[in-house]
Design a protein around this nucleic acid. Structure first.
Lengths: 226, 226
DNA sequence: AATTTTATGTTATTTTTTTAACAAAACTTG
DNA sequence: CAAGTTTTGTTAAAAAAATAACATAAAATT
């Protein structure tokens, strides 16, 4: 059995939570904490302590019975799993409001995952610097991606172009795309694709507001009946 | 059995997909299509036709055997389920790059879900118009939310303030919060909370790129051995 | 020193979600 | 007009994810 690659069987949801745990842990570390209990992590992430312990069990990390988990150690263990040793370079493709917002969020946060360039079609933006990275023309995409060995693209172009740009990215050899465009794109199997749709999330919240509202109305109706 | 409220038992994932289906259907409608097959919807959304049919079964919508689903009808059925009849008003709280980007995305797309105001602390922004909505001071949040009957808040303030602002929103009577802040917030049970974390999504993509990469290296190793 | 409390780590169970299987219907083709 | 094809709708099975249950251990308390 290859111990080295045990994390390949980790559930997708666990991978997501590991990233979230790490972020929470980094904040705790900044605040001077050295140890943390499963129920503390759980409380931050709005989940149950059991789930935290189960995730940590899956990655083979053990805490101490009375002090909980060593924050720095746990950060290191998680980083070893989710980070690429050599680091992964990313590009923001589409430097509109969303692209620039994401860039600001990400820039400098993780040394193993760095946004190194941006792309846009607008003459105003090409050649300019944003949060310390330069914006290139989409025409130079293929060259720049190959030169800088960029593997991940954050797609934030207008929906109308999403498919064309995605094709370009694939041809340039990109390995993963995070699509923030409201239109699903099509890529070959070997390219990892994650679609995130803001409107869907928003409509979901609206739906549950509506539902909650109707439930309350119903309850009032009942108490009125009685 | 209350037929009126059957949709309260719909799986969460189905709700999400219904929103996605509708968006895809609206695009098809614009392109002049009148009918669509389950496998066409599936292909757009990167899922299986079975899942589409199952979701539509759950909402009680039937297509015709040879023509598939009537696009306009299906849009109406979905809208009846996920939209609030009276409409839900939303606010973008934090008019930075991300807030403005989301506003641009959403503005005018759904008439049953409308962003009506923005909030910010910056003097430069207060009083200004963005995509047709005015930006108010965060100090006026309570008043404006109540006056305009705003039920949903899109939280895009800097992480440091997320909890304080969330508390304000809850006090003002908000019913649902979509938190785009990289820090989880805490709200009472009666407020629906959806957290979305861009960094987690990004790190997830990076992880699967890494994994894929290692798998390929392994395969090369094997073929080298043989 | 015995008992209680509070955590962890792990197995078992339940719930949720996805996928498979297949009957029925409508159209097409030989 | 019979056989074949295609697509829906639904039930059954499988897979994934979350939750519960509980044994174990270390510290605190009585």
């Amino acid at each position: 059995m290859k111990v080295k690659n045990y994390y390949k069987n980790l559930p997708h949801k666990t991978i997501e939570r590991l990233s979230q745990y790490r972020r929470a842990l980094l904040i705790c570390l900044e605040n001077g904490k050295t140890h943390i209990f499963s129920h503390e992590i759980a409380s931050i992430q709005h989940i149950t302590p059991v789930q935290v312990r189960r995730d940590l069990m899956l990655i083979g990390y053990s805490g101490t019975l009375r002090k909980g988990y060593n924050i720095q150690d746990l950060i290191d263990v998680i980083s070893n799993i989710i980070d690429d040793e050599a680091g992964i370079k990313a590009a923001v493709v589409g430097m509109g409001n969303l692209g620039r917002a994401l860039l600001k969020y990400i820039r400098g946060k993780r040394h193993k995952l760095e946004v190194v360039v941006g792309f846009d079609t607008s003459e105003d933006k090409i050649g300019k610097q944003y949060n310390g990275i330069t914006c290139y023309s989409l025409d130079d995409l293929d060259r720049v991606v190959k030169e800088k060995d960029i593997k991940l693209a954050i797609l934030t172009v207008p929906a109308a172009y999403s498919n064309d740009v995605a094709d370009k990215l694939v041809k340039a050899g990109i390995k993963g795309i995070l699509n923030y465009t409201p239109k699903p794109i099509r890529v070959p199997d070997e390219v990892y694709l994650e679609e995130y749709d803001m409107i869907t999330t928003l409509e979901k919240v609206a739906f549950y507001i509506k539902m909650h509202q109707e439930e309350e109305e119903e309850e009032q109706q009942h108490s009125h009946d009685a």
